[in-house]
């Protein structure tokens, strides 16, 4: 097995659009967007790939901040952004197709936002 090299850069929120446009101009494709809660912040990662070069950029935002959509650059990004909104409650400005919270309806709103149980211990009882 040949493990692939993955680059990860944390960038400033303000530079996001510029960076993404850069990737687009270089011909990278958008592979993934994902959100992770780390303490009182969200880490939002954008992954790109071109000819097996896999690169990630990451922005770190406070829980109640909103981010701007990259769906104007990568048309298909709306699906990740809507998902992120529905699961984490991240507000994304300017999506080309906005489901307004109806892409994934969940029992608990923004169910990934507040982890209910974490750590060692019995886990079978709810």
């Amino acid at each position: 097995m040949k493990p692939e090299n993955q680059e990860l850069r944390v960038i400033d929120t303000a530079h996001l659009i510029g960076e993404v446009e850069d990737y687009r101009n270089k011909g990278y494709r958008l592979v993934n967007m994902s959100c992770t809660r780390a303490g009182e912040e969200f880490e939002i990662s954008y992954s790109f790939e071109l000819d097996l070069r896999f690169e990630n950029i990451r922005i770190i935002i406070p829980l109640d901040a909103d981010i701007s959509s990259i769906s104007g650059i990568y048309w298909g990004a709306f699906i990740y952004e809507n998902e992120m909104h529905d699961l984490f409650g991240v507000h994304v400005r300017g999506m080309n197709i906005d489901f307004k919270g109806n892409l994934i309806r969940t029992t608990v709103p923004y169910s990934f936002r507040n982890p209910s149980f974490r750590g060692e211990g019995p886990c079978q009882d709810r």
Binding site: T106, V108, S111
Partner: peptide, 9 residues
């Protein structure tokens, strides 16, 4: 297995 998933009742 999904019994304890956040969205399964």
């Amino acid at each position: 297995v999904f019994r304890e998933c956040s969205n399964i009742s």
